[in-house]
């Protein structure tokens, strides 16, 4: 099923309620009435074509129209990556840490020590994510935005060229870490190696959250690696090509 912007928003959510995560991320509140995706987007000042593609990518793991996604401006793409970062940092990661905290609290004294290990593990992970995201928000994304600006105005400053030489988007791509690895480990530790939990229900909740976050981050990294990176590489090449031609 591929969604279109002329569908009713409420029907989209009926088809896949996980998409509420996306509407939430874009700041769209409930109370859609019978409005279409298009009119909701216009109301919130969101690019409807981009929004629909994001819905589709999130909904169908085999759907990833890279070329079409690349056709949106780097600004639009990065705006989305940034709101996703905030969703991880402000909402999901603290929420899951809280949930694991409750799990630890409800453990018998005998198990507590072991369950505390995963709380610490997740706590460290949250801090690593903070650093990963900080670097993207403060270094990589501003650079990418500037490249697009220079490309659009056909005007590149020497300082930007210098930055390009020192740290191009390709360097970022090469050192871009696999942020889902630790979530993968944590799932296995919980399912395979921790002592049987006294509170299974809570454990399922934690696992459920971890599976969903892992999938979400997979989509996110894919957007960074296979949409943003090649788009910026193209612009970098064109900028330095033009510069050489002018000289």
């Amino acid at each position: 099923m591929i969604f279109s912007k002329n569908q009713k928003m409420v029907d989209v959510i009926h088809t896949d309620f996980h998409l509420l995560k996306i509407t939430d991320r874009f700041g769209i509140k409930l109370g859609f009435g019978d409005k279409t995706v298009l009119s909701v987007c216009l109301e919130y000042g969101i690019n409807p074509d981009f929004f629909v593609e994001i819905l589709n990518v999130f909904h169908d793991k085999n759907y990833f129209p890279r070329e079409n996604l690349k056709s949106f401006s780097a600004n639009t793409i990065i705006d989305y990556l940034e709101i996703t970062h905030r969703y991880y940092l402000k909402d999901k990661l603290p929420e899951i840490e809280g949930l694991i905290g409750v799990l630890v609290d409800k453990c018998s004294d005998e198990n507590k020590g072991h369950y505390k290990l995963i709380l610490e593990f997740f706590h460290d992970y949250r801090h690593e994510m903070k650093d990963h995201i900080k670097r993207e928000d403060e270094v990589v994304f501003p650079y990418a935005r500037e490249i697009e600006k220079a490309y659009n105005n056909d005007n590149v400053s020497d300082s930007l060229l210098k930055r390009m030489r020192e740290y191009s988007i390709e360097d970022y791509y090469k050192e871009h870490e696999d942020i889902e690895e630790k979530l993968f480990d944590l799932k296995n530790i919980i399912m395979k190696y921790l002592p049987e939990p006294e509170n299974s229900r809570l454990c399922y909740d934690v696992l459920n959250e971890l599976f969903m976050l892992e999938k979400d981050m997979n989509d996110h990294s894919r957007m960074e690696d296979t949409v943003m990176v090649p788009k910026i590489i193209d612009m970098e090449r064109s900028i330095s090509g033009n510069k050489n031609a002018k000289e």
């Binding site: 995963i118 593990f121 630790k182 993968f184 480990d185 296995n188 530790i189 395979k192």
Partner: peptide
């Protein structure tokens, strides 16, 4: 084990 990272292996 199905564990990839050093911190996972430590746990």
């Amino acid at each position: 084990l199905g564990i990839k990272t050093v911190s996972g292996l430590t746990v």
